[in-house]
Design a protein around this nucleic acid. Sequence first.
DNA 1: ACAAAAGTGTTGATCGTACACCCATGT
DNA 2: ACATGGGTGTACGATCAACACTTTTGT
Lengths: 242, 242
Amino acid sequence: MNLFNNQTYIPQLAIDCVIVGYQERTLKILVSKLNFKGNFYALPGGFILQKEGIDEAAHRILEERTGMSNIFLAHFKNFGQANRTNREFLEEVIELNQEHFIGEMTLSKADFEWLTNRFVSLGYYALVDINKVTPKKTALDESMEWYNVHELPVLMMDHAEMINKALESLRLNLNTNSIVLNLLPESFTMKEVQDLYETIFEETYARNNFQKKILDLKVLERLEKKYTGASNKAPYLYRIKR
Amino acid sequence: MNLFNNQTYIPQLAIDCVIVGYQERTLKILVSKLNFKGNFYALPGGFILQKEGIDEAAHRILEERTGMSNIFLAHFKNFGQANRTNREFLEEVIELNQEHFIGEMTLSKADFEWLTNRFVSLGYYALVDINKVTPKKTALDESMEWYNVHELPVLMMDHAEMINKALESLRLNLNTNSIVLNLLPESFTMKEVQDLYETIFEETYARNNFQKKILDLKVLERLEKKYTGASNKAPYLYRIKR
DNA sequence: ACAAAAGTGTTGATCGTACACCCATGT
DNA sequence: ACATGGGTGTACGATCAACACTTTTGT
């Protein structure tokens, strides 16, 4: 039995996830270095089981990589040009890893054909609290790590474009939503919220007005103060209302 | 050779189009009555050729039904639950049209299997000037007609939900965009624009403020006046700037 | 007491809405 | 002249950004 086949998965349809985290005023993206000779980097992705819905599939893929369920996840765009295939990519991988593929015959001819077909990919982005996530490798990954959004390695296929589109979409949805708060830990200060917004939009905001704007959303509740030991007034902690 | 096969089309992936028109203060949706015994209604849809991109496919499907290219078209949502299949629907069609399918054997066993697979559908909506469109039937259609959005027949599968989601998405995008004007003829009065907005949002707006808001978008240019013969001041005509 | 950072209050501009008024057209 | 509907101007209130000020904390 081949790994990939039309009985198990929907053929020619993939899901790619832009998993966004946030730490130290930087957005981070979870990227896999593939477990082959050569430097091949890819977004976490996968295929859709015949027996699962597309959103389910995205959640499953996400959970496989982060260990977390109940993550904020949204579809942002489809990618489906006519020539969208990873054949060239896979051929390069095989070229550089002959002993692997020819010696151990990990990838059958049928699997190769299945994988190098033209694919339509459904792009999802996820927002996660980076502290709660321990990136998990699958058999395909040599590593699975966070990369600063401005220091990404060269990614396979159109994955770089996917990240850009995901961030665009994120910025658009932020204004109408409060989903960003998914990027922060359980409780946080107003300054941390502001830093996050400034990072995402690459702008700066006035401290006082920003506070008002966020509190006016009425999605946060104020907790006790946070005494850091710094010689200044202690900021309040907030958390998302339930 | 079968009509539908994996060499020609991407399997298990479909496109459905919510084609929106506007006339006499009513939104209209282009709906096909399928060319079978029984009352089967469906959104214009189709499959994606292996050699074309998904947006191309949507445009092709649209052109097949409206005769128009260069139409405003946007993806709004994917539909892909695990149990999303038209098997029950097709079985009912065949049940009611036995002489057609068994006698003439229009639909091969292989085609039937292909069509009754689980499908993921990419939902697009299009905005068209209803006067420029002469709906075109394909071989599958008994009729292809405009239906008032509030007087739709019962549609197959989840097509009713698709229309609702498309309209939601349209309303959202209207505020940031001026795409609506695609629904109007070449030139139009401000009152016609207002009627259109009021129809889409099912609200009423103050005449003077509405005019200001639209003109402030700076996407319209004023043409000559339109003398209707009515005993009142003649309204200006406008058209979209180029 | 002082520096640093958090929190709150106040003002002015801008935007959207409501109201009033003026203009053109055919009877 | 006048009824009808189109176009424009003004005034009010809400919203948002800029500025100023007060409060809290550890040294």
